[in-house]
């Protein structure tokens, strides 16, 4: 399993997760995550080579829906709940410095 989690990795992960952790939070998080990951090493001993991953508890397949339209939500009711809206649309700050 991977080496002990570093502060740099925690910073990278916090960026991926769009969380602006404070310096103090980053340090605490690094220690806590390291502790947990250390505990999670218990499964390293298991031989899992021939084990199929289990992703769903109940084996279903082909759950399909007919292509039938239902009414839209009311735009005003929805936009009323938005932090910012304008001209029938959701408003967001500019994408400056954003890696699109």
């Amino acid at each position: 399993m991977a080496e002990k989690i570093s502060k740099e990795t925690v910073v990278k992960v916090s960026r991926l997760a769009r969380l602006s952790l404070t310096t103090e939070e980053t340090e605490r998080m690094t220690a806590q995550l390291a502790g947990m990951l250390e505990h999670f090493r218990d499964i390293d001993a298991l031989d899992l080579a021939s084990v199929e991953p289990m992703t769903q508890p109940y084996p279903l397949k082909n759950v399909l829906r007919k292509d039938v339209e239902l009414p839209s939500l009311d735009r005003d009711e929805v936009l009323d709940q938005a932090p910012a809206a304008e001209s029938g649309r959701f408003r967001v700050p500019p994408t400056i410095g954003f890696d699109v």
Partner: peptide, 24 residues
């Protein structure tokens, strides 16, 4: 929960800062 469609937002000058501030 990104401050775009519902729930609360912490305003910021650009989108990425808004995301991070909102979620933080």
């Amino acid at each position: 929960y990104d401050g775009v469609r519902y729930g609360n937002r912490v305003d910021a000058a650009d989108l990425n800062s808004m995301y991070a501030a909102t979620r933080e």
